[in-house]
Design a protein around this nucleic acid. Structure first.
Length: 221
DNA sequence: CACCAGGCAAGTA
DNA sequence: TACTTGCATGGT
């Protein structure tokens, strides 16, 4: 890993931060809301996730024990606006069950566990894949992991900063090898990649001319 | 109208 | 192993 690549990954961050500013993902919410949001936002617009969480909040159901006693069907109805509500209700139940069994139903115990253990335990849950697990670890537990998503792959491969065929793990290794271990940096960076992808690096109609990453590594998107 | 959104698991060959 | 498909509401 050359010094130049490190500089490039840092340059991309600086450009994005200068253009978009801090994104403040998952600010000032409870740990439980953060974890629920991580599951509900799978392939889903955040606005719809907020509606689903709002439904649970207004019903006074945003506590661990209440969610555990809630029936699968009832939970599905509350989270309906977030889409895929049947499968996501099951996924939330699976996650709550793992936390019950391995962490006495205490999210803070999950967050306090080692990165190795907590990541492994999250990934054993059916419905929690690498992105959801890493989101919970970074934004919930404050662990220095870099969250990869489809946007990360699209933006960085289009700019030829990573190979097109890179998978989740290899992309994550690139970021971890190119940046200092800093939770705030990782948190903002991931959110900034989402921001630039949504505005300038769309799948159908990219706006490369106006993109703040224009000229990085001699490649347009 | 078509397309997309802060994925993941199961099915197929 | 390497693709493909199902899951589903709501915004642009």
């Amino acid at each position: 890993m050359g010094k130049e690549k490190k500089d490039t990954f840092r340059l991309v961050y600086d450009r994005l931060y200068a253009h978009f500013g801090p994104q403040g993902w998952w600010p000032g919410e409870t740990a439980l809301e953060m974890v629920i949001g991580a599951v509900l936002t799978q392939n889903t617009n955040w606005v719809n996730v907020e509606k689903a969480i709002s439904n649970l909040k207004q019903a006074g159901l945003l506590t661990f024990p209440l969610l555990r006693t809630l029936s699968l069907e009832s939970l599905a109805e509350y989270i309906r606006p977030s889409g895929y509500y049947n499968i996501k209700a099951r996924r939330l139940k699976n996650l709550l069950q793992m936390i019950e069994e391995r962490y006495q139903g205490e999210l803070e115990l999950l967050f306090a566990d080692s990165l190795e253990n907590s990541r492994t335990n999250l990934l054993t849950v059916k419905g929690i894949g690498p992105e959801t697990a890493d989101s919970i670890l970074l934004y919930g537990a404050g662990q220095p992991v870099f969250v990869i998503d489809t946007y990360t792959h699209r933006v960085f491969s289009r700019h030829q900063l990573v190979p097109e065929e890179s998978d989740y793990h290899s992309l994550q290794e690139e970021f971890l090898g190119s940046l200092p271990e800093d939770v705030s940096l990782f948190s903002e960076y991931h959110a900034l990649i989402v921001a630039v992808a949504k505005e300038f690096c769309k799948k159908k109609k990219p706006r490369c001319k106006e993109c703040p990453l224009q000229g990085v590594e001699e490649a347009d998107c």
